[in-house]
Design a binder for these strands. Structure first.
Length: 323
DNA sequence: GACGGCGCTAA
DNA sequence: TTAGCGCCGTC
């Protein structure tokens, strides 16, 4: 399990009440930001320390992995220059009745601050450019001691709640897109039907995928009755052309589709399997992904590679990967 | 007056 | 890529 520190000044109320943390995927100028990339490495059960107005007013336990979600409406003007779609992790917060001020304990905290991507300055002040920062177990232990010493209840990872809204959020997002397709006057009704069917991997999209893929790349199952035509670049993020493009698809066994769809696995351009560090290796092998050092699933077309690059950049749950 | 989920920019 | 510095709105 891992430990995180989140600087939430303007959005604290919204994120506390909503039970989540949210970030855009990129800086305003489109550049990768490590504090946003860190969202992709959170696992259920991880501990999250809230930081607001120089204090720690709440401690949370993550209850989901990272998933794509729209910018919360309740942010209002706070996040005006952030993108409309970003990363979200569900978090069960416990408010501290006696918030502590890290700066008051900076002498003991300073030696435990990370050398890079630290959430605090050496003098104990915050850092404007930080959102979600990784901290060590040692620092997390210290913060918990300080919080308990001040009279707060201890928050532990086994306070984990089962609340994971990722399916609901994605369902709502995709339902809105279906409505847009349905109301569009430029699209013919037969194409509308195909676009909606493609969301479930059915219809024309499935036929188009069959031109490129014959079996599940990992399980080897080739009876298409048991395979899901899975979008590489997610349906919700695709253009209408991409939603029906056969090169934007793989035939996958249901278990493998579920792992690929949620970003637990991906592929590089040479066909090597990539496994997210957030995924438990035992679960992975139980779900049918062989626990070998490297697995090559064969060549991809240049079209497939284009979509795979998107999958690695926007779906795969690993921070810091350049591709 | 203090400070930060910034925006630039230097190296 | 990372950290430092200056801006300025908000608490």
């Amino acid at each position: 399990m891992r430990y995180w520190w989140v600087n939430q000044n303007q959005t604290y109320e919204a994120e506390l009440n909503g039970g989540y943390i949210w970030s855009p995927k990129r800086n305003k100028n489109g550049v990768r930001n490590q504090f946003y990339e860190n969202m992709r490495e959170v696992s259920p059960g991880d501990l999250v320390f809230s930081f607001r107005r120089r204090k720690i007013p709440a401690v949370g336990v993550a209850s989901s992995y990272c998933y794509e979600a729209p910018k919360p409406d309740e942010f209002g003007t706070a996040g005006q220059n952030w993108e409309k779609v970003g990363w979200r992790v569900d978090v069960a917060y416990t408010e501290m009745s006696e918030p502590i001020t890290p700066k008051a304990h900076i002498d003991v905290i300073r030696p435990l601050l990370p050398g890079k991507y630290s959430p605090l300055q050496q003098n104990g002040d915050g850092l404007q450019s930080v959102y979600l920062a990784a901290i060590s177990r040692e620092l997390a232990d210290l913060l918990q001691q300080l919080l308990e010493g001040a009279g707060n209840p201890r928050v532990d990872t086994d306070n984990i709640s089962q609340l994971d809204r990722s399916d609901l959020v994605h369902e709502e997002l995709e339902r809105q897109i279906e409505d847009q397709i349905d109301q569009s006057i430029e699209i013919e009704s037969t194409e509308k039907q195909q676009l909606v069917k493609s969301r479930r991997g059915q219809g024309l999209f499935r036929l188009n995928v069959q031109e490129y893929e014959k079996a599940c790349r990992i399980s080897g199952v080739c009876d298409t009755r048991f395979l899901i035509a899975s979008h590489i670049k997610p349906w919700r993020s695709s253009t209408n052309v991409e939603r029906l493009d056969g090169e934007n698809g793989l035939f996958l066994s249901p278990n493998i589709d579920s792992l690929f769809d949620r970003g637990f696995i991906s592929f590089d351009d040479n066909g090597n399997l990539l496994v997210s560090p957030v995924l438990d290796t035992q679960v992975m092998s139980q779900l049918g992904v062989p626990a070998v050092q490297s697995l090559n699933v064969g060549r991809f077309t240049s079209g497939q590679m284009k979509y795979l690059a998107h999958h690695r950049r926007e779906v795969f749950l690993e921070s810091g990967r350049q591709s």
